[in-house]
């Protein structure tokens, strides 16, 4: 049962991490253009070097 002292905080921390990730994605407009983002990685425009 002593394990709970570690396990519960860890599970809460991991869950909060996921929630924080979702917030970050929402704030940084990752959901503005779902169709376009799905297509964009198919282009080879910046394959040689990253976009300046």
């Amino acid at each position: 049962m002593e394990m709970l002292v570690y396990l519960i905080p860890i599970s809460l921390f991991l869950g909060a991490l996921g929630l924080g990730g979702f917030f970050w994605a929402l704030k940084s407009k990752q959901f503005e253009d779902p169709d376009g983002d799905g297509q964009r990685f198919l282009t080879d425009d910046w394959d040689e070097h990253p976009k300046p």
């Binding site: 253009d33 169709d35 297509q39």
Partner: peptide
């Protein structure tokens, strides 16, 4: 499609006076 995005963005970005063009495919 993906080709549409790059074609449109490339064509507009090479225009003099255009700073940045970004396609939103969903809208």
């Amino acid at each position: 499609c993906a080709a549409c995005i790059s074609a449109v963005e490339r064509a507009l970005n090479t225009q003099p006076g255009v700073h940045e063009a970004r396609v939103n495919l969903t809208l």
